[in-house]
Simulated assay, not measured.
Amino acid sequence: MPLVTFGELTVDLQRKKIKNLHISVLPPDGRVRVSAPISLSDTAIRMAVVRRLVWIRQQQAQFQAQPRQSEREMCSGETHYLWGRGYRLDVVLVDRTAEVKLNGGWIRMKVPPHYDTVQRETVLNQWYRGILKQRLPKLMAKWQTEMKVEASFVGIKRMKTKWGSCNPQSSRIWINLELVKKPPECLEFIVVHELVHLHERKHNERFIGLMNMYLPNWREHRAKLNKMPLAYNHWGY
């Protein structure tokens, strides 16, 4: 992806077969991505970026202000999150199949002695996935009924730049696994957000109107999500 400099701002420029130009400021460090129609001139792209420069700087400042977790070593004493609450990790070495359980204020992870950091993280993420898979279907059923829409597919995966995604044409929705670490209302906000895209593809006035109708306090949930600690890993795209 080519890097283009506009004054003091460097952006990743993508030219695609699309009708409109899109500017995104991405976590965790506020990198700027510009997706532009193939036919759009460099001058027009530059002017569009300059017009949004104040907004871009505001978004970058928000990312810089967000707390960040330290790099995870998957050892006892670390703090890991579930539904917005921090729990201490307790790693127990056992000669049997790995498992994770919530016990009071602790996340107790039993793993074989030979498991390294990556394997321990995989075990923990599988546990997180199981918890999210239990809660997500109920939320989807509730809001699909309320909004009179139906997703053809709902999946969970770790995404590096989005909390959720929706393809309105195929009605396929993905939810970021990291949401299991955030307060429950943040997950609900993302579910509603993605389902609204089945009514309205763009983030326009109609989209905002639908969000206001279905989830009047969605801005509070979005603000809470934006203030939560970012994952330690270096997000890319």
Rank of each mutant, 00 (worst) to 15 (best):
M1E: 13
V4L: 06
T5E: 13
T5H: 06
G7F: 10
L9G: 01
L13Y: 00
Q14D: 12
K17S: 10
I18Y: 13
K19M: 10
N20A: 10
H22A: 14
I23W: 05
I23V: 10
V25S: 07
P27K: 03
G30Y: 04
R31H: 13
V32N: 06
V32L: 04
V34M: 03
S35F: 08
L40M: 15
S41R: 12
S41P: 03
T43W: 06
T43E: 15
M47Q: 14
A48Y: 05
A48M: 08
V49W: 05
R52L: 07
R52Q: 15
L53G: 02
W55I: 07
R57P: 03
R57V: 00
R57M: 07
A61C: 02
Q62K: 14
Q64Y: 04
A65I: 01
P67F: 08
S70A: 14
C75F: 00
G84Q: 00
R85A: 10
G86W: 01
R88S: 06
L89V: 12
D90P: 00
V91D: 03
V92C: 01
V94F: 07
V94G: 02
V94W: 11
T97P: 00
V100D: 04
L102Q: 13
G104L: 04
G104V: 03
Y115F: 15
D116F: 06
V118S: 12
N125Y: 12
Y128S: 05
Y128H: 03
R129D: 01
I131M: 09
L132H: 05
K133F: 06
K133P: 00
R135Y: 04
L136I: 01
L136M: 02
P137Y: 03
K138T: 11
K138W: 03
M140E: 06
A141Y: 07
Q144G: 02
E146K: 14
E146R: 12
E150P: 01
A151I: 04
S152Q: 11
V154L: 08
R158W: 04
K160H: 13
T161S: 15
K162T: 04
W163A: 08
N167L: 09
P168Q: 12
P168I: 09
P168E: 13
P168F: 08
W174R: 08
I175N: 04
I175A: 05
I175E: 01
L179V: 04
K181N: 00
P183I: 03
L187W: 05
I190E: 10
V191M: 07
V191L: 07
V192S: 03
H193M: 06
H199K: 11
R201F: 08
H203N: 10
R206N: 14
L210T: 05
L210Y: 08
M211N: 10
M211I: 03
M211Y: 08
N217W: 13
R219V: 07
R222E: 12
L225C: 10
L225F: 12
Y232A: 15
G236F: 12
Y237G: 10
